[in-house]
Amino acid sequence: MSNVWIIFKRELMSFFFSPIAYIVLVGILLVNGISCVILIQFMNDQPTDVSVFTIFFNSFFSWLALIVMTPLITMKLFAEEKKVGTYESLMTTPLKNGEYVISKFLAGFVFYIILWAPTAVYFILVSMFSATPLDQAPVYGGFIGLLLIGLLAVSMGCLGSSMTTNQIVAAVITFALFGGLLLVGFLPYAIGGKLREAFQYFSMIYHMEELVQGILDWRRVIFYISGTLFFLFLTYKIVESRQWKA
């Protein structure tokens, strides 16, 4: 456990020394800030049947931030160490492959949370200023959605990063995996019939739509956790393969 903590801490701190992390942070804050301000301006004058936060979390801007930021923050997790060769020296320590993967994943996930956390300021401000007490369900639901999607996205990022020594390639793999799943998420809106319900099960957009309305469904939690486990297992096997390939 202490191994996980040491690697996790080292990895998390390395994010804060990386210029790309700050570029991502500034980008996210700008995109989300503009999106939030436009929505508030647009919905301020008259009563609406959906909350401004309901739209915010499932807006084009939020998905744009997610699909761009995740590959950028996860691309270096394994690829960098593979490239510079520090991984080989790590293999000489009593560190287990599983601990190595978990600590990297946790560091990526915690940094993902740190990147999204400042957006809570918008909701605090709106709640403070609003003329009527706002139902916080869309905010809770939205953040739960971000956490669940973050688990899956960061695990995809771990896989992408473990597959190559080139960080750009790692980012492209993650982008393709996440983007592919995101695209499948549009199918329930395009088709009818029995298949529609099946596609809803995989649709991140649909899941987010439910959550931002204030509905938490345990089936969605199982879906994201099982997806995360699968991608982490693949990552683990790739990391492990270096031992028997050598």
Binding site: I40, N44, P47, D49, V50, S51, F129, S130, A131, D135
Partner: peptide
Amino acid sequence: PQEFILGLNSRQLMTI
């Protein structure tokens, strides 16, 4: 139907 009213004044909008 659920109803959401923000009702922010221009100063509050500016602050946000």
